[in-house]
């Protein structure tokens, strides 16, 4: 059972205080988008054995959504960060690449 650090209230929260929210950094496509774009937005998800960027809500705590970079195989957590970003902060990327040289995430370099 995981623990994750909530970047908003500073609690090292127990998994039972959190709610998982799936993949992070999705780009929303609305009316006017192509079928392919919309399909990607709605259905296409990463399913990696390795580094995953994901959404969590501190549901039983401050109620805030945050993002986490976590290894789905080893459960190592490379960092948690605010949800109001389109990519992980530099230090989180560095922590990931220290363990996974050359790591990339979708279109992000």
């Amino acid at each position: 059972m995981l623990t994750l650090h909530c970047p908003y209230c500073g609690i090292q929260a127990d998994e039972t205080e959190l709610a998982a929210g799936g993949e992070a950094h999705l780009k929303r496509y609305g009316p006017g988008s192509s079928d392919d774009e919309f399909e990607t937005y709605l259905f296409m998800r990463e399913n990696k054995k390795g580094v995953h960027l994901e959404r969590w809500r501190h549901a039983y705590g401050c109620g805030k959504w945050f993002l986490a970079a976590r290894d789905t195989a080893t459960l190592e957590v490379y960092g948690t960060y605010a949800a109001q970003t389109s990519e992980p902060p530099v230090e989180v990327k560095a922590a990931i690449r220290a363990k996974h040289p050359g790591w990339t995430w979708k279109e992000q370099a």
Partner: peptide, 13 residues
């Protein structure tokens, strides 16, 4: 309520 907060916090923040 969670649905509202989700959109407000992570999309239209």
């Amino acid at each position: 309520h969670g649905w509202m907060e989700d959109w407000l916090q992570t999309e239209w923040y």
